[in-house]
Every structure is written in structure tokens, then in C-alpha cells.
Design a protein around this nucleic acid. Structure first.
Lengths: 225, 225
DNA sequence: ATGCGCTTCAAACGTATGTTTCAAACAGAC
DNA sequence: GTCTGTTTGAAACATACGTTTGAAGCGCAT
């Protein structure tokens, strides 16, 4: 075997199992047996299970954040001076994700699923790791969003960004299950690209909705038991 | 102690811990020590950890689904014949959730977080349990949504409903944290009702967005490393 | 007071986990 | 070929988990 083919085999197996089952539900023994590698190899090469989780994220997030920076650079250059629109900003993000060179056909959906899990599973160490490693592209995205929605108050924008994040993270984190359901119910095949293509207009429309109505429409009172 | 104060103490502790940390990450020992109850009590009263998870969901989902049925009844009666609008349907759901009698001030956000986890953490048994116990109000909500958005294809509607679910579950489940951040950053106080009042227009706008654009806008090509 | 369900309790069970150990196998330089 | 540092291997470690056990405690009708 090559120098450390082992490292990649572990990362491949871990990535897939984490995406399928979550972090706590995936044991090192599952990973090493799927990777056809000795159990001790994980601790030898990575140090701990948590460090392995970080390595899995770093492997796709580092090139992704570089791609994203490029996309933002090009976008801002193309708009020279004027701030990019909301649609342009969201598409830049989406395309960067979708066009990332994939290791296999499941690549993009694993990628998305892992991002969803990072938000959803409250693994403190992961949160900290991601925040300190990838804060820059994140802040830049936030700044672009702000410039693209000058009509919103800070408070409205804040909440709507949370809504966008939620819709995205949630959908992506269960995208496999949702695709299966759709396949069985309506017999429709769906790719991650198509999901993204449906998600972006939804987000853009929500983001640009008319003023939040702070009081429910007249006559909508609901009886409570 | 009353007859089985123990059962409620276990449910209270379990509910909060599950919402905080997820199911696999919460051990029976954490639950019983938080509830100040003997470890064996869980298996004595509920039979197993999975059954406890079901009981936690049943405790709030059963009254909620009754409240929701009432709200839908009243709504359909008020509209006599004509299908309720999307806004009306969403408000009926939202108000039913917000007006549920809460055990404490964190009630609504725990409730939401648990629903999110139920979707997200791939606990097969939970999925099955929820589907067979609460399929009726769920189907009814889906039917109302369908009648309120006749312009959407089934596939578009399906995905947009997932986006709504995601935005809602995610936001509500972390609403405590998000409220705190907002308080510190902008000095703004926010109630759950206000969040809901911002969320509903966002969802309605996303749901009614123009046709999903399946191809990115011209000129949005992104350079890839 | 006695006996009978139901509930609590401390302790243990068997299993699975992440991690460590240390000897064996290996690769490359001399 | 021999030595050296790196990687693999089988086995064990300590710990945590969900669950089970059997005795003790309790309220209450008889």
C-alpha cells in the first residue's frame, strides 16, 4: 500500500458513515471495518475520534472555502462597485457547493448532510473548530447579504437569515431521506442540484417578503382546548 | 410523594435533556440523576429508553394535535366551502403551537427542538411511532397546504414544505440562543410570538415564490479552483 | 398486625465504546 | 544485510451504556 492510503480510506469510510448515521451513532469499529483498516489506526493517525471528525470536515471545507472566496471575488469584480444582488450572492454560494470536485456521485449530498449535522448535532467541539477555522468566508457571506438587502431593518434581516439557515441546514441534513420519500410517493428522482435550484428561489422570496406582519390577520383567532 | 410523580419528573428531565443534547447523547443516568430518581425507574415505568422517547413525544404531541384539529375545524367552518388561504393555514398552526399550555417558559422552544430532532436524527423507531400515531393532523395540514397552493406542482410543493419545516424547526429550536444574541448585539428584546410573526410572512412568501428557476441566472458562472 | 400490590433502591450484568499497549511487519538509507 | 523510524496488528484496558435482579419500603384493605 502507498504511504498512507490508510488515512484516506479512514476518511472516506468515516465521511460516509457520519453522513448516514451521525457522529455519536458511528463507532470507530464501524469505520475501521468499513475501511478495512486496523482499529488502532484511527488513534494513530488522527489522535482521537473528535480529531477524525475535524479532519473529515477539513478535507472538504478547506477547498470549498477557497472556491467560495474565488466565487465572491469574481462576483464583486463583475459588479464593480455596486453590491451583488441577493440572488447572485445565493447562487454564488450554491454553485460553489455544487461544483466542488467530488470524490464520487454521493459526494455533494454527503457534503450537505455533514454541514447540516454540524449545525444540528450540538457537538460543542465541532462548532468551535468550524468557527475558528472558517469564520472568514462566513463573515463575508453575511456582509454580502447585508448589502443585498438594504431595505431590511437589522432585526428583520437577522431573523430572516436564521430562517434561511434553518431551511437550508434542515433540508440538507435530511436530504437523502427526503429524496427517498419523494421517490416512493411520487416516483420522482431528484438530484442535489435540483434541490438547490428549488431552495434558492424560496429563500430569496422569503428574504424579500413584504414587511413582516406583526399581528395575525383579523378573524384568525383560534380556539384552544 | 404522589402516585407517580416519578413518571413526570422523568419526563420533564428527559424532555429537556433530549432537546439540549439529542437522544443518543443523553444517557438514562443523566436523566435519572437530573430527575432525582433511581436509575431503574425508567425501565420500570416505561420499559426501555426508546419507549421513554415515545412517551416524551406523546405527552406534548397528543394535546397539541387535538388543539390543532380544533383550530382546523374552526378555520374550515369559517371559510365555509372555500379553501382557507395559505396565510390562514399557517396562522392556525402557529397559534395552536404558541397557545399550547406550557409547562414552563422554555416549553415552546423545547417542543420545536424535539420536532426538529425527530426529523433529523435518523431514529427509525421514532419516525415509525410518530407516523402511525399522528398521521391524521399531519395529513390534514398537508391537504390544506395543497388546497392553498394549487399553482404549485406536487414536487415543488413537497420541497417547499420541507423548507418551511426546516426554517421553523431550526429557528424555534434555537430561539433562546438566537434571542440572546440579538439582545446582546442590537439590544432588542424578542418574544416567541414576535418570532412567529416574522416567520409566517417569510414562509408564505417563500411558498408562493415564482416558479423555481432550474438554471442559475445568466452570468453567474463561478470559477472553480 | 398481616399480607398484598406497587414502587423504589443499590448492585450487578453483559455489551459496546474510545483509547492504549507493545510486539511484529515494513520501507528506505547506509 | 543491517539498522532506524514509521506503520500495522491483535489484544487488552478502563469506562459508560441500557437493562435486569432481588431485596427493601410503602400504602392499604382485610
Amino acid at each position: 500500500m502507498a504511504q498512507s492510503d490508510t488515512v484516506d480510506r479512514i476518511l472516506d469510510a468515516a465521511e460516509e458513515l457520519f453522513a448516514d448515521r451521525g457522529f455519536s451513532e458511528t463507532s470507530l469499529r464501524m469505520i475501521t471495518s468499513k475501511a478495512k483498516v486496523n482499529l488502532a489506526a484511527v488513534n494513530y493517525h488522527f489522535g482521537s475520534k473528535n480529531a477524525l471528525i475535524h479532519a473529515v470536515f477539513a478535507r472538504f471545507l478547506t477547498p470549498f472555502s477557497a472556491t467560495l472566496e474565488n466565487a465572491f471575488d469574481e462576483l464583486e469584480e463583475r459588479c464593480d462597485g455596486k453590491p451583488p444582488t441577493l440572488n447572485q450572492t445565493l447562487w454564488a454560494l450554491t454553485e460553489s457547493a455544487v461544483r466542488m470536485p467530488q470524490r464520487n456521485e454521493k459526494g455533494i449530498s454527503i457534503f450537505m448532510r455533514l454541514l447540516g449535522l454540524a449545525y444540528t448535532q450540538s457537538q460543542g467541539h465541532l462548532r468551535k473548530f468550524l468557527e475558528q477555522e472558517y469564520s472568514e468566508p462566513f463573515s463575508r457571506f453575511m456582509r454580502l447579504l447585508k448589502e443585498a438587502t438594504p431595505q431590511l431593518s437589522s432585526v428583520d434581516r437577522y431573523w430572516r437569515i436564521q430562517f434561511m439557515l434553518g431551511a437550508t441546514a434542515f433540508t440538507m441534513s435530511s436530504s437523502d431521506a427526503l429524496r427517498d420519500i419523494l421517490q416512493n410517493k411520487l416516483g420522482v428522482e431528484t438530484t442535489v442540484q435540483e434541490i438547490a435550484a428549488r431552495l434558492v428561489p424560496f429563500l430569496a422570496a422569503g428574504m424579500q417578503a413584504e414587511d413582516a406582519m406583526l399581528i395575525p390577520p383579523a378573524g384568525s383567532k383560534v380556539s384552544v382546548a
